[in-house]
Simulated scan of single mutants.
Amino acid sequence: MQLMPDSPLRRVALEVEAHVATEGWDQAPRLFALVPTADLVAREPGLADQLSADPDSITPIEQELSGDRELEDLLTEIVWPDAVAGCAAVVERIMLPPEAEASLPDDPDELLAAVAAHPDRREVRLVAAITRDGRTHSTVRAREPIDAELLEGPDLVPGLIEHLLRTLA
């Protein structure tokens, strides 16, 4: 298996995924502001001992979300301040193989029922991380088997990445 090239964005995406994974499955969506660690330490020197000493590192700062709306809907209203270099989101979804799409109903209620009952559905946790300069990194982990491999790459979750990019425009 070839690893992705290492970068501060890749490391923070993996950190966010590992952090969320410690709390198990069936979680609400999570959103993180990504701040250059050096900037954070300059503003809050007392945090220096708790954060990476790597001058290029990025620190994720979790944001509180309203639990009564879909993340994609909330993202249409978010505009990050200049101090935020990027953002990351974590969502759990059900994925189907591409060949299953042709047989899915158009009605939203019927679609949800069909996806939930589909024998080839897979529950997954998606992480997307982006920066203002357009760099992206994403991860996908299946719920089953319990030791499922973490897949990663720059564009594994293009829809979520697109939603996040709009918050930085």
Rank of each mutant, 00 (worst) to 15 (best):
S52Y: 08
R43T: 14
S57T: 05
R69F: 04
R43K: 15
E70L: 06
G46L: 10
L71S: 07
D54V: 00
S52P: 05
A42F: 08
L40T: 07
E62Q: 12
Q50C: 08
I58V: 15
D54R: 05
P60H: 13
P60N: 14
I61D: 00
R43I: 00
S52N: 02
D68R: 06
L65R: 09
E62T: 08
A48F: 10
P60E: 09
L47E: 11
T59H: 06
L65G: 00
L51M: 12
D54M: 02
E62P: 03
L47G: 07
E64R: 12
L40M: 07
T59D: 02
D54S: 04
V41K: 02
A42L: 12
Q50D: 11
V41D: 03
P60T: 10
I61H: 04
I61P: 02
A53R: 15
A48W: 15
D39I: 07
S52V: 04
P55I: 05
R43D: 11
P60R: 11
V41S: 13
T59S: 14
V41I: 15
Q63R: 10
E44P: 08
L40W: 13
L40Y: 15
L71N: 09
L40H: 13
E62D: 04
D56N: 11
T59M: 02
T59I: 02
